[in-house]
Design a protein around this nucleic acid. Structure first.
Lengths: 225, 225
DNA sequence: CTTCCACAATGAGGATTTTCATAGTGCAAA
DNA sequence: TTTGCACTATGAAAATCCTCATTGTGGAAG
């Protein structure tokens, strides 16, 4: 799961991040609200851990912003204060859970799982681009309501493009995302070419446009123009 | 391996830390030279990643300090500048390698491995268990010097066992490690059974014992007894 | 001790992924 | 403009992975 951690204490942040990475989550960090805001406006997250005691402003505002940009994300508020006010206000604004520092990492983990469970139990969750849409739960891919069937790698690759729409992805980055570390870059990228080819073919045959732009010598970009 | 990362850019620091944790390293962080200096005087590290462009002073000084306190550590200098001066000075002072930003994580990884290899004085990097040994670089698997050929998944699975020898691994943990989040647990675990079966067969046919113990209802354990 | 049932093992076949061979294309330099 | 070369595309074959059907097994309950 993709998790954004908003926290200025570097020690805490590291501990949490390292722990969550070991739990097989993908972590990104923001050490203040401004950076958090930028990330939220660009990426999709499953969980956002939000310290509301940061120096540069009121974190409760950020919750609102998250609710607008990133509906899918679960929010867990972290606070040093134990003030009931903050707690109530945070939960009112749409936070899914609330923790006070200090906390056990295992506690954090179980809360994350609980929030994910709650989130996933209800309605469907799609990410899309023009006529293309992917249901992130059922993993169904549709072109104008016409369902196409992708294999796992194809699905992962298309998903990676959609999560990073309008952003150039190098072949190296794609390889690392789809195959992890144990891929030998000294090899060639035939496998990427092949999967790209298959995705393009399947989308085209269902009447979709080819939004996968090849940037010669750079990589690929999923974009309108 | 224990790694200290000295870097003030939180994005880079996180990316590096997360990546290295996944590679089974233990990471600690310092966002400036003062903190780095404190940590160095207290702890032992195997590798120190050192950004010499930090705001609070001259990083080359820190190299000297490391050399005095922490002789065992390998030093990899990171720099935004491409200046030959810095490079030479850094290497002169005893850094083991030098990288310029930006860099690929995979590149960092291979440099870390190279430095560790050099430090450990002897050539290859193996992890083993009785008559079984895996070279983590060449990915060769040997049973009493008899080489066997494993497929990727088989290799990942055996590696996972060897890294966690004597530890019980649930099927869920194995699934998550080998296939990530996008595996449907509601399914069955046939694929694990199949790969286990193949590994056992290959090891046996090369004359190795079957150290993969089945713990009924619990999972599996790679152990002698 | 026997029965039963969930868990585990196994082999074969189908699906997916990767490799390979070959063809096509964009960019830079002549 | 032409040429050369590295990069990209493509289809088919090979290797690997996953699914399925079937068989075997451990341990709890009776």
């Amino acid at each position: 799961m993709k998790i954004l951690i908003v926290e200025d204490e570097i020690e805490l942040l590291t501990a949490v991040s390292n722990y969550l990475v070991k739990e097989n989550h993908i972590c990104e960090l923001a050490e203040n609200y401004q950076k958090a805001d930028e990330k939220i406006s660009i990426y999709e997250y499953d969980i956002i851990l939000l310290d509301i005691g940061l120096p540069d402003g009121n974190g409760l505002e950020l919750i609102k912003a998250i609710k607008q940009n990133n509906l899918r994300a679960g929010i867990i508020v972290i606070s040093a204060k134990n003030s009931t006010d903050d707690k109530i206000t945070g939960l009112d604004l749409g936070a899914d859970d609330y923790m006070t520092k200090p906390f056990q990492l295992s506690e954090l983990n179980s809360r994350i799982k609980a929030v994910l469970r709650r989130r996933q139990s209800n309605g469907s969750n799609t990410i899309g681009f023009n006529e293309i849409s992917i249901d992130t739960d059922s993993k169904e891919v549709r072109i104008n309501d016409r369902k196409i069937k992708l294999t796992r790698k194809e699905h992962e690759l298309l998903m990676y493009f959609l999560i990073n729409k309008n952003r150039v992805l190098t072949k190296e980055a794609i390889a690392e995302h789809l195959w992890g570390d144990n891929i030998d870059m000294a090899d060639n990228f035939d496998f990427i070419y092949t999967h790209l080819n298959n995705i393009r073919r399947k989308i085209k045959s269902a009447g979709g446009k080819d939004y996968i732009r090849t940037l010669y010598g750079m990589g690929y970009k999923f974009a309108d123009v």
